[in-house]
């Protein structure tokens, strides 16, 4: 346990250089490229003294290097600063957006696992059969479907033609978010508040976007599960289990699948970055008010602090998840020691 703690601390420390490099890159790119928040806000034809005042106010008159050091100092104090366009703290801007993104990605991950792992295990148990080939084909095709297009097609089918599911937003207009919103994780909030009608509304809204995201990633997990299952199904203990007359289903789904799960868990950590990237596109397709849409919105306004803040949050999310995966690893695999 003490070693685990040591490991966690070293992992946390390791995210610092990563953040530093990303931030430096984004900072330089943002400021070197044409366009700045002042002209985005005031337009190109504003009088020079107004532009000057605004620059002074935002600290954009200082040399880039000074701005950079100031920003790093701010980050070191865990302060993401204030939006340059709207007078709002970056943290407050993200307060309701981040939970939306996290909720979307977590549900999507559940869909991914629910689709990918059983299909992969089934394909492996029926290796080289037509069903195996069909499932593998599904995996390959799904991997090549752009997530935003999948979203549009599902919207068209379930939202427009069948008219079963809503295609935009987190809740419908008749649900009053202020009634239950505490943490802004709407699923949790509605359950805590015991507001079942609202919970239904939230679930029906999250279904399509998270399914979209889940399906596109399921191909990766399907292939990984299949490959691992093929290895495990060849191992001695599976043979022994079969020899004892344990039903094949039991052997495949209880004995083998459990052991094939460890590499899948690693993949889960690695794929989380892909999931977040996919989430931006899904958010854009489903008008989902998450931090991905916030990023796109603010990029056009050149709202430097918010863009940098969102990047920091993404980077932290990625490292947090990979750390969590490593810790879970240590618990389920007794051979892993830190």
């Amino acid at each position: 346990m003490k070693n685990l703690l040591k490991y966690i601390v070293s992992r946390v420390l390791l995210t610092i250089p990563m953040l530093f490099i990303l931030l430096s890159l984004v900072f330089v790119v943002l400021r070197v490229m044409p366009g700045d928040p002042v002209s985005a806000m005031l337009g190109d034809h504003a009088p020079a003294h107004v532009i000057r005042e605004k620059q002074l106010e935002l600290g954009l008159d200082k040399p880039i290097f000074v701005q950079y050091l100031n920003y790093l100092g701010q980050i070191a104090r865990f302060d993401l600063g204030e939006s340059m366009v709207y007078k709002q703290r970056v943290v407050d801007t993200m307060k309701d957006k981040l939970p939306a993104t996290v909720e979307l990605t977590v549900i999507a991950m559940i869909f991914t696992l629910l689709i990918g792992i059983p299909l992969g295990a089934f394909a492996a148990s029926k290796r080289r059969s037509a069903r195996d080939f069909g499932i593998r084909l599904y995996g390959n095709i799904v991997y090549c479907i752009p997530v935003y297009w999948m979203g549009l097609m599902l919207q068209l089918l379930f939202g427009i033609f069948l008219n079963w599911l809503p295609i935009a937003g987190r809740t419908s207009a008749r649900t009053f978010v202020t009634d239950f919103a505490r943490s802004n994780f709407y699923i949790i909030d509605t359950i805590v508040a015991g507001n079942w009608a609202a919970l239904g509304d939230v679930l029906i809204h999250i279904f399509l976007p998270s399914l979209t995201l889940g399906i596109t990633l399921s191909g990766v997990f399907l292939r990984l599960t299949r490959a691992n299952m093929l290895d495990t199904l060849k191992s001695d203990y599976v043979l022994a289990a079969r020899a004892r007359g344990i039903p094949e289903k039991h052997v495949v789904y209880r004995h083998a699948l459990k052991n094939a799960f460890i590499p899948i868990l690693t993949m889960l950590g690695l794929q989380f970055a892909t999931l977040l990237a996919g989430a931006i596109l899904t958010e854009s397709t489903f008008s989902w008010p998450g931090i991905g849409r916030l990023l796109l919105e603010r990029i056009y306004l050149r709202d430097y602090p918010v863009i940098q803040g969102v990047i920091v949050v993404y980077a932290l999310l990625v490292s947090l998840i990979s750390m969590l995966v490593d810790i879970i690893y240590a618990f389920i695999d007794p051979r892993v020691k830190y």
Partner: peptide
């Protein structure tokens, strides 16, 4: 760079 979601970087670059 690798551990960070690539698309987000590409978006930032393309926008700039």
């Amino acid at each position: 760079l690798y551990s960070f979601p690539g698309l987000i970087l590409a978006i930032s670059f393309a926008a700039m």
